[in-house]
Structures are given as structure tokens and as C-alpha cells.
Amino acid sequence: MQKNRFERWLENIQNTQDEEISCSECFDGVSHYVEVELSGEDAAVRLPQLKQHLAQCPACRAEYETLHDLQELENRGELPLLDDFQDLIP
């Protein structure tokens, strides 16, 4: 069952740490995080602080999700070409 926004917010409060990394630190490490994840390793275990920040920060999470999907497409040789975007953004 999907959680409502209030439950997700309570979860964020519950998972609050005394020390959390900043958005800049997350930005510095996110490309490494994505590569670790796509290599099949457990990135959350290797980089727990980054994982925690991604769970709390919607802006960094949106960037991470896009980077992850983009890199996955590139690894598969399926990154859309410029011409493809004429159809994707009609």
C-alpha cells in the first residue's frame, strides 16, 4: 500500500541523524554512488551517508534518479540521440 505524504514525512523525521551530509557533499559523491549501484554492489552499504541524504532531500534524489537511469541507458547503448528527442519532446 502506498504511503501518504504524512507517513513519508514521519519516516523522514524518524530517520533524521544528528549529522547529515550536505547537498554539495551529495553532489560530489553521487556519480560514484550510481556506478557502485550499477556494478551490482550495495551502494547503501558502501555509502550509507549518501543514501541517507538521498532519502531526505527531494532535489538531490531527483538528480540521482535521473543520473542512474541515464547511465543505465548509456551502459546498454540506448542513450537517446539528439534526433530521438524530436519525438520524445514533440
Partner: peptide
């Protein structure tokens, strides 16, 4: 600042995604 702990393109993409977001 590129530390070499990812592909260069993965590292570079994050700048484009950040600006686009």
C-alpha cells in the same frame, strides 16, 4: 575536482541534470 571514481561522462552528466532540474 574529477576524482576518477566514476566514468567521466557519469560525473559530467550530473552537472547537466542539476542545471536542467
Amino acid at each position: 575536482d574529477f576524482r576518477g571514481d566514476s566514468k567521466f561522462t557519469t560525473w559530467a552528466y550530473k552537472f547537466a541534470i542539476n542545471v536542467a532540474l
